[in-house]
């Protein structure tokens, strides 16, 4: 029996309404990446993680648990799970993230912050006051819960005097830049992806010589929703990476399958395997720019392919 769609969506929506995140994680875990960086608290310009990179190790653990539940008699208990979840955070029991994965994903955020600093960008961080953007609940169509949450996120920025938001992943960029303005009257935040911010500040020296061949996997959301296609290529070229294009790329990129993960984990993996085959036909080294793409494609590729987040390639030249 597949996962009961309505109850699974219900658990995610209840979590967002009651606990402000689809998968509630301790505040200390969400902000751990920033330890030792001495980022100012708040300010007119903030780096907004939207918690996606911090959530991925939990989502991976959760999806492993869900994969076991899908097609097993345990799927019958998802309804009961939703009822219990209203009182106790059941995701906390189900999802125990792998430590090495947490260290790696935290490291990507550290890398992004260092790249921005190196490029001379002044920014702060909201630490434990930062909220998840609500992207997954929006995709699942739970519009009323999402709209309420979006207003809370916006109010948090307003109270802190934030005017410019630098995002780190495509889904959060899309929510804050294109979806929130349709829901919130007078919305006035300037929202840009760190890739755009960095690309704008690149010195006009042209591509660095040498470097490895790396196949690029564009995120559908960056490419088709936000039209962010060139900044990542310019940045990689400037870092000395030879970017290779797979069969479907840029505006016509093929989805990693990740959005099906929360309800149809097996279908998500099948889609990812098809994309991995396209990427591997070009190179065994791949670059992604969305943590959902990275985790989903890596799961399908196994040890046959070395996939890395774009921040990991770009920080190769930045001292630890």
């Amino acid at each position: 029996m597949p996962l009961p769609t309505g109850d699974t969506i219900g658990i995610l929506a209840d979590n967002l309404r009651l606990r402000k995140s689809v998968l509630p994680i301790p505040a200390g875990v969400a902000t751990r990446w920033s330890r030792g960086l001495n980022l100012p608290r708040g300010g007119e310009t903030v780096l907004y993680t939207g918690m996606m990179y911090q959530l991925i190790p939990y989502i991976a653990a959760m999806s492993k648990a869900q994969g076991k539940v899908e097609d097993s008699p345990l799927a019958n208990f998802v309804r009961l799970g939703r009822m219990i979840n209203k009182v106790v955070n059941i995701s906390g029991f189900m999802a125990r993230p792998a430590r090495d994965m947490q260290v790696r994903y935290d490291g990507m955020l550290v890398g992004i912050a260092r790249l921005l600093e190196q490029a001379g960008v002044e920014f702060g961080y909201l630490y434990e006051e930062e909220l998840y953007s609500g992207a997954l609940v929006y995709d699942l169509g739970v519009d009323d819960v999402f709209a309420q949450h979006a207003r809370e996120v916006y109010q948090t920025f307003r109270k802190k005097g934030v005017k410019n938001v630098i995002t780190v992943d495509p889904h959060t960029t899309n929510m804050l830049r294109s979806v929130y303005p349709q829901l919130i009257e007078g919305y006035d935040l300037q929202v840009r992806s760190y890739l755009e911010v960095l690309a704008e500040r690149l010195p006009a020296t042209g591509p660095a010589p040498g470097g490895a061949d790396v196949v690029i996997h564009d995120s559908c959301v960056y490419a088709r929703y936000e039209n962010i296609i060139e900044p990542q290529r310019k940045l990689l070229a400037a870092a000395g990476i030879k970017v290779k294009e797979p069969r479907d790329s840029g505006k016509f990129t093929l989805c990693c399958g990740g959005p099906a993960e929360s309800l149809f984990p097996k279908k998500a993996l099948e889609r990812a395997a098809i994309r991995v085959a396209q990427l591997q036909a070009v190179s065994r080294q791949g670059v992604t720019m969305c943590p959902i793409c990275l985790v989903n494609l890596q799961k399908a590729a196994g040890p046959d392919m070395n996939l890395r987040d774009i921040s990991e390639y770009l920080t190769q030249g930045v001292r630890p």
């Binding site: 519009d143 088709r224 929703y225 959005p259 099906a260 149809f264």
Partner: peptide
């Protein structure tokens, strides 16, 4: 619910149908 909202269809649609938003 199994639609990925990836907009591959939309970017190829000659009639400009807002497919992903319709699915949502």
């Amino acid at each position: 619910y199994s639609c990925l909202l990836c907009k591959m269809c939309e970017v190829n649609c000659p009639a400009g149908v807002h497919i992903a938003e319709n699915v949502r």
